[in-house]
């Protein structure tokens, strides 16, 4: 049982690994290639989602992020190392971390739901 709990804790830690665990990246370049490499097409210019999933704020761990981009299991087209380097992935990831949290829904009168 204890072993199982440790395993679960490890898995959670992996899934929620902090930005610090990711290689450092150039957020400014990340913003640029987020558009030029076509990420915006499905995820929006601010990573808020659209045809594809929402990426920011609070992106998934870099490992999960990188793994999915290289070998997507859903509809996303793959971005192999041949077209996006590890450095560029880190840049995009750094850019995603710069994106601010949206306003709470309750603070937006237009979303009061009437």
């Amino acid at each position: 049982m204890r072993a199982l709990l440790l395993l679960v804790a490890a898995a959670l830690a992996w899934a929620q690994s902090k930005p610090g665990a990711a290689p450092s990246g150039d957020a400014q370049n990340g913003r640029k290639i987020f558009t030029s490499y076509g990420c915006y097409q499905c995820h929006g210019y601010d990573g808020h989602g659209g045809a594809g999933a929402r990426l920011a704020p609070n992106p998934i761990s870099f490992d999960a992020f990188s793994k999915y981009i290289r070998q997507p299991t859903g509809e996303m087209p793959p971005y192999t190392a041949k077209v996006v380097s590890e450095k560029e992935l880190a840049d995009i990831y750094a850019f995603l971390h710069t994106l601010p949290a949206p306003p709470p829904a309750k603070s937006v009168p237009l979303l009061e739901g009437k």
Partner: peptide
């Protein structure tokens, strides 16, 4: 409602903002 807040102040304008306005 929560999903609509993502990209609320984005430029270009989010489709959720357009819809809400």
């Amino acid at each position: 409602r929560t999903e609509a807040t993502y990209g609320w102040d984005s430029n270009p304008i989010s489709t959720a903002r357009l819809s809400a306005e």
